[in-house]
């Protein structure tokens, strides 16, 4: 039986991360950008789990848990910001949100 090994896990993780990066950079909808961010976080979590398996050490899994927790926190705050923005600006399009200009 062919075992999995670290390499495929990392490849998948990196591809997933890349897809996330593309989403973050390309999409204009704030919500989708958030989802792409979630993809990137998950890619990292996957890498952590893979490393945990490779080193036979539970620390990686703990890190994955932390990633999850951070993601939860981030989504909570981020989504309330989205709602707030929508309430005041009636848009979730990122290109419209350039009001910092001085």
């Amino acid at each position: 039986m062919v075992s999995v090994g670290l390499l495929p896990v990392l490849v998948v993780s990196l591809l997933l991360f890349t897809i996330g990066v593309v989403g973050v950079l390309v999409r204009r909808n704030l919500l989708v950008v958030f989802m792409s961010l979630e993809l990137m976080l998950n890619a990292v979590a996957l890498a952590f789990v893979g490393f945990a398996r490779a080193r036979a050490d539970m620390d990686g899994q703990v890190a994955a848990l932390f990633v999850m927790a951070v993601a939860a926190a981030e989504v909570a705050v981020g989504l309330s910001l989205v709602i707030l923005l929508f309430r005041t600006r009636h848009t979730t399009q990122l290109d419209d949100l350039t009001m910092l200009k001085g």
Binding site: V21, V24, L25, R28, V33, L94, D95, L97, T98, M99, L100, K101, G102
Partner: peptide, 21 residues
């Protein structure tokens, strides 16, 4: 500073992200 404020720091988040990338 003014240029930074007017041009760079307008708030195009994705441009920042592009910079990071």
């Amino acid at each position: 500073g003014a240029w930074n404020g007017r041009v760079l720091q307008r708030g195009p988040v994705q441009d920042y992200a592009l910079g990071i990338a």
